[in-house]
């Protein structure tokens, strides 16, 4: 049996993003980072990154500033809750996104 032929006969998934679709659409609240309060931004060096660590969905980058991937962010709010500087607030999803923030 050829490889391709066999592959259609079993359930074997290959890795890829977005099995659950663009889960960003699940959001009711959206995290918004206040860069003036964000610790790594303020210190301009690698620090804190609690938002990156605790994110269940790997949508926050470990960068300065941290960047959130809104295609997949489900809006749980854990990052806001765990930010020691209180720099992340959860705003209503219908609020327009401000450029540069």
């Amino acid at each position: 049996m050829k490889t391709r032929e066999f592959a259609d006969k079993i359930s074997r998934s290959e890795p890829g993003p977005g099995d659950g679709g663009n889960t960003g659409s699940w959001r009711v609240l959206r995290p918004v980072i206040n860069l003036e309060a964000c610790i790594p931004v303020k210190l301009n060096k690698k620090a804190c990154f609690n938002c990156w660590l605790y994110c269940p969905d790997c949508v926050v980058s470990k960068t300065i500033p941290p960047v959130i991937n809104f295609d997949y962010c489900k809006g749980c709010g854990i990052c806001a809750e765990e930010c020691p500087a209180g720099a992340i607030s959860m705003v209503d999803e219908s609020t327009p996104i401000e450029e540069g923030k």
Binding site: M1, F6, A7, I10, S11, R12, S13, E14, P15
Partner: peptide, 13 residues
């Protein structure tokens, strides 16, 4: 053709 292989990961069943 396919097996549990870290070099070619897949999720079976």
């Amino acid at each position: 053709a396919h097996f549990l292989d870290p070099e070619n990961p897949g999720n079976f069943n």
